[in-house]
Design a protein around this nucleic acid. Structure first.
Lengths: 238, 238
DNA sequence: GAAGGCCAAATTGCATACAATTTTGGCGTG
DNA sequence: CACGCCAAAATTGTATGCAATTTGGCCTTC
């Protein structure tokens, strides 16, 4: 332990396979390669990743805690299928939390952070110009990463974890209820927010974030299907 | 399913033993019957509750998600021992979230809710007059319950869960860093907040909540032991 | 006497076996 | 033909066994 043993990143080997499976499943859910409501059979997932059910269960429990998976006793785990009401709660939570995060971020943002934001913006604009469902998925992903970077800059690990959950659930909601699919069409919300951050104007960043969330949510179709979910789902007309 | 089967609380039978163990452990941690840093041996806990390690592991994993337990690979689970910096993050998060919850609660509070709040206040004042460590623990517990009731009234399940985590971690922090132990000495913050809610004045409730959090945090001794944690801990003078 | 290495005991990580529960498909009856 | 019941299959819940890792003590060596 004396020679050049520092500055090593955590070993690239796959230690903690439960976390790896959790991350793979989360990606698949957020990208909607796994449709909401899909049953996640323990044995099947285990075979897929070549691990025992024990490890799969740990991963599923983690995802259940994040709200991306719903487990029912003796029935199994299913990809979350948020109701419009739950979707509204996700965005209400974001409206409550993110402006504060933006203020905190504006207070302690560094030039290096700004550079990271710009790089992210560049990725986003590139994806916007591409076509196809893969690019669409990547776009939603990148858009979420922007918000996570913001929370990361704010420097509060607890709020960062809350935002990770909210962003993941938002992606699910957008995939489920999004009208156009691309929530940022016509706006440059992220760019404006970065400008406000660079100027150190936390209040403006917070305000821009609020309207940004408005933009996202206004692209959703959250008609209340209260109590008639099944019947309405079976009605192909309408 | 036709006769008086509604209005029943969840069956009193112990289905889902992992959740039961999790709740028991959480209570013990929040009440500080389990000191921070205590190792939670899987086999030992299993023997105590008469279940296998499998069930214990599920409970410990859940508590790790909540931040009340820290797990180290191949080393086991330990009761969380939050650093002053983590403690500050807990309260920063609460400052960010709770005022908004108060506004939401003020907007939709019912007379029935107000009655619940009053009952809670009554319990708190009773506990305040009692002496002994048991009453002190119950007081911290009751104080937390007030905040959870507030989040419950606000009607957002996601924010409620965030608050459950923050309140639990706050109790741990108060137990660790509290000076007087009783954070509400001399104030009647909770009562004032209920009054504001009853008057439907969300902004005032939010403001009162902020100052309430200030009161709680000002009772803590969060001297920055940055980098010198061990050395300082061994220095009995000072 | 102190430092360092090595071995045994304890503990966790994981896989697997078995029990309990739910789901499914078929059969018989109204 | 529809409905309900029952048994078999599938799936989850839990316990247990084994391998891998860590920990603590003992012994050797300087």
């Amino acid at each position: 332990m004396t020679l050049a043993d520092h500055s090593f990143a955590p070993p690239p080997v796959a230690e903690d396979r439960a976390a790896m499976i959790r991350d793979h499943l989360r990606d698949a859910i957020v990208d909607r390669r796994l449709a909401p409501g899909t049953k996640l059979n323990e044995a099947e997932v285990g075979t897929l990743f070549d691990v025992s059910r024990t490890v799969v269960r740990a991963a599923l429990q983690a995802l259940a805690f994040e709200g991306l998976v719903k487990t029912e006793r003796n029935r199994g785990a299913f990809v979350a299928n948020p109701t419009p009401d739950e979707a509204r709660q996700v965005f209400a939570s974001r409206r409550l939390i993110e402006p504060g995060i933006a203020r905190a971020a504006a207070a302690c943002v560094t030039p290096k952070d700004i550079a990271s934001f710009r790089a992210r913006l560049h990725d986003e604009s590139r994806l916007l110009s591409e076509r196809g469902p893969s690019a669409r998925r990547a776009e939603i992903h990148a858009s979420g990463d922007f918000h996570l970077l913001l929370a990361n800059v704010a420097g509060n690990a607890i709020l960062l974890r809350f935002m990770e959950e909210l962003v993941a659930r938002s992606s699910l909601v957008i995939a489920l209820y999004g009208r156009s699919g691309a929530s940022s069409c016509g706006h440059n919300d992220h760019g404006n927010i970065v400008n406000a951050l660079e100027a150190g104007d936390g209040n403006r960043a917070a305000q821009l974030l609020l309207t940004h969330i408005d933009h996202i949510e206004s692209d959703l179709d959250l008609r209340s299907t209260t109590g008639l979910a099944l019947a309405e789902a079976l009605n192909t007309r309408d």
